[in-house]
Computed example of a mutant assay.
Amino acid sequence: MKNIFFLLCIAVVFISCNSNNKNTEQTNNKDVKETMVASIINSPLLGSFVGPFGDNKITLLITKVLGDSIEGRSVVGGNDRPFSGLAKNSNGIYSIVAKEPGDDKYDGMFTISFEEKNPNAITGNWTPYKEDSHGGAKDFSLTRNIFKYLVDVGQYPQASKRLLKEEDVNNLMKEDLQVMRNEIFARHGYCFKKKDLREQFEDKDWYIPNTVDVKNDLTGIEKTNIALIKKFEKYAEEYGDDFGR
């Protein structure tokens, strides 16, 4: 009986210890997760920064910060590329080195400087992996700016606000119709591949390149209007002044 009682006591102690270890492990895991969340939410580095980048306009998005690791993406020149790297803080100044994957001919490395006392601006340099890529290395100074979908901007905001009628488009020149149609994409932050199209919008304060795919963002009104505008663009090309232009 004494032996049985002794064995039972050992089992109870073992189960108790094992349970305590699990509880401690769960608590530690919870603390780690909470620390990770706090790091991601509270980092001053997080955000979207916009400004000139050579002949183009760039949006640099820092989307995740965990400890000294960062992740994000750059949208410029019709490309949307991810990057990742490390951030070091010395006396309130962050120094960031972040690299794009390298599987695209235009990829490169960002070196970024960020002051805690001035959280709305970053400066830096981008160096391509290939020397002749995208016109070579570029310096930049960017300002914090968040993309917002706005329907009241541009020359032809009605193309995003309501269904167009034929009388809205049948007396416009082909060039005007192209602006009307491309403004719809620009309002959604579409980063145009063609340089001449980018140049139409990159000097506009409201335009922030944010993506290279807006198919799922277009509204039903916009999709219908795009089809109508394209039809009249074709008419304008085929018939010119004979079509009432």
Rank of each mutant, 00 (worst) to 15 (best):
S141D: 08
A227D: 10
K234E: 09
V32E: 14
D104W: 14
N120P: 07
F110E: 07
P52D: 08
A98T: 00
K215A: 14
V32L: 15
L7F: 14
Q155T: 08
D132W: 04
A159Y: 10
D55A: 11
Y207E: 08
G78L: 06
M1H: 12
N171A: 06
G47V: 07
F114R: 04
A121R: 15
E100D: 03
N18C: 13
G92K: 02
S133K: 05
A186R: 01
G72C: 05
K88Q: 12
I184N: 02
Q158Y: 00
H134P: 05
F243M: 06
G136Y: 02
D203P: 01
E115D: 14
L7G: 12
I226N: 03
L197E: 11
K231W: 00
K22G: 00
G124H: 06
N42G: 13
I93S: 07
D104H: 15
N89A: 11
G77C: 06
D132E: 12
I41N: 14
I10H: 03
S48T: 13
M36W: 12
D55P: 13
T24C: 04
N3L: 07
Y129L: 05
Q158P: 00
G78H: 10
A87C: 06
W126G: 00
S133Y: 07
T127Y: 01
N79Q: 14
Y156Q: 02
Y129N: 00
G108K: 03
I221L: 05
P209E: 00
T219D: 01
R144L: 06
Q178T: 11
R187T: 08
R245G: 09
I4M: 12
K88N: 13
D107V: 05
L163N: 14
N145R: 15
K174A: 07
I62P: 03
E100R: 07
V76E: 04
D168W: 01
D203C: 04
G67D: 03
S43F: 09
T63R: 10
K130G: 06
G102D: 01
K165G: 08
T63E: 11
S39K: 02
P157K: 03
V13E: 01
I208G: 04
I70W: 07
E183D: 11
R162D: 00
T224M: 12
S16K: 06
N170R: 00
A98R: 00
V65H: 04
S74G: 09
D176G: 02
G108H: 02
K165E: 08
L228E: 05
T63G: 05
S160C: 02
N145T: 13
V32W: 05
T219K: 03
I184V: 10
V151F: 06
T59G: 03
F6D: 15
N21R: 14
I41W: 10
K230Q: 14
N56R: 11
S48D: 10
N118S: 11
N225S: 05
K105Y: 10
G54M: 01
E25F: 09
P119L: 02
